[in-house]
Design a binder for these strands. Structure first.
Lengths: 345, 345
DNA sequence: TTGAAAGCGCTAACAT
DNA sequence: ATGTTAGCGCTTTCAA
């Protein structure tokens, strides 16, 4: 049998209340008594049961973190930020992997509620569950923060990076280097790619550069190892065609890595003959030769920010009425994959 | 106020016992009663409180997972394996990041015990805590499985990959390709590097190849982004010296990536002029050009295996006496960074 | 097939 | 400064 507060009380010859008091250090206890109790605790190797504590206090000091994938390089970075902040506040994290299934996402939320978490943060929430009102409803039940995946008009707490500004900055940088014939590489389906493409098109128009359809490159899967090879092949094909671009904007670093490999394959020099800019600044952007110039999504900060926001909501307990949308700035990280355009169109 | 089982009972006009029975589906309940209760549950949007349940049952269906780092590419893969197995068994994971601090590791264990987890798996446990007997003592208190970090004579449940065999296989492969002048690249301190170096030295001796001290390359930090650049510089220096090796064995894929970058920097062709073999098969091994030949540590399986082993221990409840040591085989993954030696010493 | 009642280990009034 | 006691929300005998 596990030792309980009662065993400790007996051992120290005091009441369980007193033991509780030295445990929580929230009421005056005579020094000598405290010593006795502490000795008993040590002797019995007593560990308080936080289930019982949580049951009464209605506070568990746990939060749930839901991610679409553990192995994606982006999410662990965010989780780290959350853990960094929450850990300091004595919270422990539940981690749930949805494998990008809306169904699993809902199920995990259910389990977390059963476990009486003090709050939930969902990184990259599924569109389906945002649109259906699932998260709006959840917001009324439990402190909730969504990281990225922002949709207009959805009444939830959000924290996100300003991908529009980031795209703008990347494109401006390329243009400042003299590039006019710029390709755009994206994956299918995901909302943030749409946003980026829209901005790409707009900027090209504003600069009076006709957008060639051949310069919009779309691969099926945007966020995995396979993405690298898909991107590589796609870029090779484009580079071999007429009027090859002098630069490429990639919607994330996986794609940009593929672009670097494409150039290497063709003997095209990066950045002298071909400039490549990525997005996210995940760890692989520092692994290539040359190292990738990219837009930093500051994932660690995103995590910290999510945690801070969640803490606010938990403390606030207002539930509704005081929803927040926090937008973090992106940052251009200049490394070695971009240079002045060597030729003009 | 949250709705409780009592509210449901009132709504359905039955006793809480009956509600509990339909919740757990463990005693006969008349169909019509069940319907009533289910309707009440739905109407009140009732979620059972698993703290209360855990308090009674002495079973929480939670397990703690402790990792030295979230962002290391190796650990998330293992965690995914654990989650895959545990998730199917209705478990939820607590995730704890120790930042490689023995002190944090101990503190997290303490918190997990308070939370009454049914078991704990520690991935890459800190040597300090293994040697001090901390984990041996813990084994007597709670179901515990250690992933890697095996030390002889330590009475804990272990699961690990056979790194000795893996090293052997890698070296044999290199030799079969005709390489005799082989370099060895490692980081400091970590036990598994010691094991690998020992084998390297032994094999060289067995093959009557004098081990040149210049061929043992040691960098300070073996397991982070910085490792790539450190390795790159280290390999460049070696390759520029007398009698350069025709192949290199790298203790992990970060180092191997650095080696590839070194070759690229020097204009040395991989694999034609220089063969590189890595270890682990983390995701970056598929990103480089050429793709890395490496030894697969089957991290996902490692995680699954750990989960299965933990489940056994939890069910078994024998606590001691029945400790297990599970060893997984590694696998040589032939990709494109190794080829027949172009010259001999 | 159902219900009453005794806790699980702890906290927090309320006494003393 | 310390102790008594009533629960927190649930499961599980035991009885009906």
């Amino acid at each position: 049998m596990k030792t309980t507060i009662e065993d400790v009380a007996k051992e120290a010859q005091v009441s369980i209340t007193t033991v509780s008091r030295v445990l929580n250090n929230n009421y005056p206890v005579k020094e000598s008594t405290r010593k006795k109790v502490e000795k008993a605790i040590a002797k019995l190797n007593f560990t308080p049961n936080s289930l019982a504590r949580g049951l009464i206090r209605k506070r568990t000091y746990t939060v749930g973190v839901i991610v679409p994938s553990m192995t994606n390089l982006f999410f662990p970075e965010v989780v780290k930020g959350i853990e960094d902040c929450m850990g300091q506040n004595e919270y422990t994290l539940f981690l749930c992997d949805t494998k990008s299934e809306p169904e699993y996402e809902r199920r995990h939320v259910g389990r977390l509620k059963e476990r009486q978490v003090d709050g939930i943060v969902v990184i990259g929430p599924m569109s389906e569950n945002i649109r259906s009102g699932f998260f709006e409803a959840l917001t009324k039940e439990v402190p909730l923060v969504l990281v990225n995946g922002y949709h207009r008009g959805v009444r939830c707490n959000f924290i996100l990076t300003d991908e529009e500004m980031g795209t703008l900055e990347a494109l401006a940088y390329l243009q400042a280097l003299g590039h006019r014939n710029i390709a755009f590489l994206r994956g299918e389906q995901i909302y943030s790619y749409d946003v980026k493409e829209e901005i790409f098109t707009r900027i090209m128009k504003q600069s009076n550069i006709p957008v060639m359809q051949e310069n919009i490159l779309v691969i099926p899967e945007g966020n995995s190892v396979e993405t690298v090879d898909m991107s590589r092949d796609m870029v090779i094909r484009r580079l071999e065609k007429e009027n090859p671009p002098t630069a490429i904007f990639c919607c994330n670093d996986w794609m940009a890595t593929g672009a670097i490999n494409a150039a290497k394959h063709l003997g095209v020099r990066v950045p002298e003959d071909f400039s490549i800019i990525g997005f996210d600044n995940i760890v692989i952007s520092q692994l290539s030769e040359p190292k990738l110039t990219t837009i930093d999504q500051t994932m660690f900060k995103l995590g910290q920010g999510a945690a801070e926001l969640l803490l606010e909501v938990i403390e606030g307990k207002k539930g509704e009425g005081s929803l927040k949308k926090v937008i973090l700035e992106t940052k251009l990280v200049k490394r070695n994959s971009c240079a002045v355009a060597s030729r003009t169109v």
